[in-house]
Design a protein around this nucleic acid. Sequence first.
DNA 1: CGATAAGGTGATCATTTGTTCATCTTCGCG
DNA 2: CGCGAAGATGAACAAATGATCACCTTATCG
Lengths: 208, 208
Amino acid sequence: METSEEPLTHRQAEILHFIQSHIGQLGYPPTLREIARKMDIRGISAVRKHLDALVRKGRLIRRKGARALDAESLFPSTVPVPVLGRVVAGIPVNAAENRLDTIAIDPSWIPSGPVFLLRVKGDSMKQAAILDGDYVLVRAKETAEEEEIVVAEIDGETTVKRLRRKDGQFILAPENPDYGEIPVAEGSAFRIVGTVCGVFRPALGASR
Amino acid sequence: METSEEPLTHRQAEILHFIQSHIGQLGYPPTLREIARKMDIRGISAVRKHLDALVRKGRLIRRKGARALDAESLFPSTVPVPVLGRVVAGIPVNAAENRLDTIAIDPSWIPSGPVFLLRVKGDSMKQAAILDGDYVLVRAKETAEEEEIVVAEIDGETTVKRLRRKDGQFILAPENPDYGEIPVAEGSAFRIVGTVCGVFRPALGASR
DNA sequence: CGATAAGGTGATCATTTGTTCATCTTCGCG
DNA sequence: CGCGAAGATGAACAAATGATCACCTTATCG
């Protein structure tokens, strides 16, 4: 599902790089004349043609107005992921008002599709190397495979557990002998919120 | 060492927020008139005063030219952290050439001082919830306290272990009964590279 | 009461900025 | 050879943009 990467000429790559580095250093894109200056181009229309080519090749977005160049949003250097709440307490995942915070995460660490972060409370998943206070990266979806670690809502409570089948019915299994399995009874209000696809523990040790 | 946070008025905060969100959505800052439109201000000079106030309070950088606003570089939304190598193999930490990759990490997840990421090989720290393939966030420093999880170099090998004192000498203790302690002998080449202050496991489960 | 700061209106003006058009060179390709 | 693409030059021009000035309102503070 990748965008076809049309190859850039050497000059186009140079100009795109200058635009990106200008944004990175100053916080806003350069004007056509600023590009011309740095590229040792006397005329401004040559720059325009290069920008047109970059737009045509999908590497740049141009809008009306001065400095209206966008080279970042095509290939975001970071993805803002919402922190939706703490597990255990019931979380209305779709309610944007419940958003506690937003954390920037590198795109290479994020799977495709809608994701969010949850703060884990308790150590029921200790054996799976998920500790109290960890952030879990959750891919939001309504289904899951057996043996996957899921975020599920059961009887108004939301927990992180491993989804398992036992004696013909689903159970939510902790990864800690001190905790008991949670059977998914027939009549119970049960819903899979998503699958855990990442674990982040940013504050190991004491001092910050 | 924090910059003194001069408080913003409600209106100034609104305008700063609009500028930031404009940059986030379109990739470049708005013009004075675009700000005026969104804020329901008829004149442009009122906007200018607000920008002057934001600059004075250190929340914005302005330069000459259209859209020359920089609201990002004051408070970076992301910190590039180098991935320096895999543990176990000897890692010349100071050699920038050894940089495998760079990952963007949210500043709220990063302690002060120089940090880098290492990819963990093996499961000798399993009980400490650090698994094979995890990235550990390491604060580079030459000293550590007892009971801290450290990255240390001993006899040319680099490992992640818990620093402990036993029988009057330091040992590098694994968190897995299948592995043995590593005594730090008197004559051995031993060096603390840093302390582990974060664990990241981005690829839990199968599909990416 | 007067001073001051925050917020706003309205208009003028020089500059900057992007657009457009004509013309040129070089290079590879059929 | 002719053709087109990439790259560049130069100039004219309309629109957009920020700077600046004068003046207004509403609070707050001493």
